[in-house]
Design a protein around this nucleic acid. Sequence first.
DNA 1: CGCTTGACACCGT
DNA 2: AACGGTGCCAAGC
Length: 99
Amino acid sequence: MNFNQKVWNLCKKIPVGRVSTYKILAKSLRTKAYRAVGNALRDNPHAPLVPCHRIINSDGTIGGYKGKKNSKEKSRLLKKEGIKIVNKKVDPRFIFSFS
DNA sequence: CGCTTGACACCGT
DNA sequence: AACGGTGCCAAGC
């Protein structure tokens, strides 16, 4: 299992209507490679399989998507999933953590 | 084998 | 509160 595979695997485990952060993902992997996590999602080979748009920054900001630092699509998708976004930041109550 | 880059995080100013 | 510099880890060249 590659690092990227682990990352994608965790992404798949995120329930619908919830989001997670790069930090949480890295923590779940028992590593501090926050950036490597994002790097892994940069190329999302399994678009629908891995909902990478549910991964946001630890401070609640959307971060990037599809290789772009800012993609309104991402925030829009999240809102469509039922997640509330305020001030370009995801409401912390929607953040999901792996146990 | 070593340097640079990147969908980040943290701390100081 | 906003900006910038520094640290982190994995991949690519």
